[in-house]
């Protein structure tokens, strides 16, 4: 997609977001509303300015790509996004270490990493280090491990 158009859409979304927050801030009482109203009001003005800049650039440059970070593969981004959401959901249900042991090799291999053995060895080693640090050393009460719990 044209970068200027993408930025214009983002500017519209950001404007709507800050307009909503501005409305919320106006409902606060007394001194509590001074800063929120000032900040969200300024943000609305700035996002409108950003949108105007993008519109002008779109009219002037048409399909110009503009400068910015290198493009990326949307399919890969979708894989990463789904994996991260499933991973976070998995922590609550399967436990942190079980989810990590599944996510780490699954994500790397689904994105094109082909050395299974290294992926599995690195995963186990990494999980062991995390277990030592967060469970044994820091005693962080992580969510219960369903699978490991069944093993005992």
């Amino acid at each position: 997609m044209n970068r200027n158009l993408l930025e214009l859409l983002a500017a519209i979304f950001v404007t709507a977001f800050f307009v909503y927050l501005f409305g919320e801030a106006r409902g606060y009482a007394g001194q509590s509303k001074v800063m929120p109203v000032a900040v969200t009001g300024l943000a609305v003005a700035l996002s409108l300015a950003w949108g105007a800049q993008c519109s002008v650039a779109l009219v002037k440059g048409g399909g110009a790509a503009g400068t910015g970070p290198a493009p990326f593969d949307l399919r890969r981004l979708a894989i990463v996004a789904v994996a991260v959401v499933v991973y976070a959901l998995g922590i609550g249900t399967l436990g942190y270490f079980t989810s990590t042991i599944i996510m780490l090799p699954a994500l790397s291999i689904s994105l094109g990493y082909r050395n299974w053995l290294v992926a599995i060895l690195v995963t186990l080693g990494f999980a062991a280090v995390l277990y030592a640090v967060f469970r044994l050393l820091l005693s962080v009460p992580l969510p219960a491990e369903t699978l490991f719990g069944m093993v005992g």
Binding site: Y87, L104, S108, Y113, L130
Partner: peptide, 12 residues
């Protein structure tokens, strides 16, 4: 390999 390093950072 970046493909192993990325998930490790996410987990950490």
């Amino acid at each position: 390999p970046p493909l192993l390093l990325g998930p490790m950072i996410l987990a950490l």
